[in-house]
């Protein structure tokens, strides 16, 4: 298997790990790899930082009070 394919496979594992999509067994295997290979840890750290960066820098606005009020006004409670 070429170096590039190895890297891609490792990146996929790291990505799945960060998405909480690995089984317990797969997680354990990845942790062993991280403990034995600094490159794997670096890859994991970089990808985590990228995702943190995207989440922190994506604009998020609040729903307006007028919107919330309009929704609340539609609630009708049935008589007991």
């Amino acid at each position: 298997m070429s170096l590039t394919n190895n890297h891609q496979e490792l990146f996929q594992k790291v990505s799945l790990y960060l998405d909480n999509a690995l089984s317990a067994e797969e997680q354990s295997a990845l942790m062993q790899e991280i403990n034995s290979d600094p490159h794997t840890l670096e890859l994991l750290s970089k990808e985590q930082r990228f995702r943190d960066f995207v989440k922190a820098r994506t604009e998020r606005r609040s729903a307006s009070p007028a919107l919330i009020q309009a929704i609340r006004e539609k609630i009708r409670i049935a008589p007991a």
Partner: peptide
Amino acid sequence: GASHLDFRDDVF
């Protein structure tokens, strides 16, 4: 085979 791009935080 370049499907993973290296995110360099020193750039961003």
